[in-house]
Design a protein around this nucleic acid. Sequence first.
DNA 1: TCTGGGGTCCTAGGACCC
DNA 2: TCTGGGGTCCTAGGACCC
Length: 400
Amino acid sequence: MRRIAHLDMDALYASVELLRYPQLKGLPVVIGGGRRAADETLRQTYQDHTLAGIPVESFPRLVDYTGRGVITTATYAARQFGVGSALGLMKAAKLCPQAILLPVDFAEYRKYSRLFKDTILEIAPQMEDRGVDEVYIDFSDLPGGQREGGRVQARLIQKAIFDATGLTCSVGVAPNKLLAKMASEFNKPNGISIIFEHDLQSKIWPLACRKINGIGPKADEKLKSHGIDTIGQLAVREQQWLMDTFGQKTGAWMHDAAHGRDERPVVTESEPVSISRETTFDRDLHAVRDKAELSAVFTRLCEQLATDLQRKGYVGKTIGIKLRYDNFKTATRDQTVDAYTANAKAIRHAAGLCLKRVPLERKLRLLGVRIGSLALLDIAQVATISEANRVADETERELF
DNA sequence: TCTGGGGTCCTAGGACCC
DNA sequence: TCTGGGGTCCTAGGACCC
């Protein structure tokens, strides 16, 4: 029998911070901010203290923050004030000014991410990485994977992760990924939920359509406008009607999802499709008036992207830019070049040409650089790439 | 003083080829 | 001389996820 687990670390970022600052347990804490100037003072505050004994009173508060960041995670105590993921920090400060503010520390979260995934792999090798804090695990052929519908292995993995990291997680086990993902939400935190096919009507159909992984705010809104609020209501709609209303592919998929059908395999390895770097400025910049500043950021992004490519061993040939204007509208341009590259100057050159094709009257809040059509760097490609780099060096010029 | 950063996948039109 | 039908690649935008 196919048994798939979805494992979700409980509030990973906040939990990692609580390991460092146990005195914050139970308090409203918000983790957010970015790398920009406004966040540097915040970062410095924590660096100047010793880890051991910062009294709660001396932690920075949300009300003192002045940057453009968003909330990455909020503890349960903070969520009660209506603040949560993706909310702007300045807005959050109005709802819960006294909340303690911690800067995000991705390096630290990644460390724990590696640790919990390695722990799983020692027990169950069929694991699919789904980002920093969650994975799918195929229990189907795992020794003992069928016992109690997967509960025995789920419990074992949960305990192994806690012993290795001090962190808790929640696990759902079901006939497929779709249902496992929903099941892992059922008993948070530190819970296990086992779902069988026959639980569909009682446990899945009462849920909101939005609980289906893949139905976001837009699709949910449209479903609601047709009087479809729950998965059960979605399930009784004609598949043909869904296809006519949402498109062939989406409609057919929605119908399957509502009936708990999902054949996607657990994918243990995959190659990246694209790599990108982007940054939001401290203040909106104008292409002409802030030319020097923009140009410097642009070059830096290209250099970072090139470094990322080289470190990961990839080359790419579709190079693109992303702009976000002060009105939050986004524009992208990309261009496929003849030769694969991982060279900063070649990227900067192609991205510069893209920039010339996009309107630049409005001020910008974000600039990004992306590379796609990736290939793994191998010996056969080295000659082509070095030639391309030579050409790029020769044709390099200022584009702003 | 609203609204981060890094991704994937889908759609849709046009170019181009057979 | 008014009109085909695929298939693939490229580009721009958008939905969605973590």
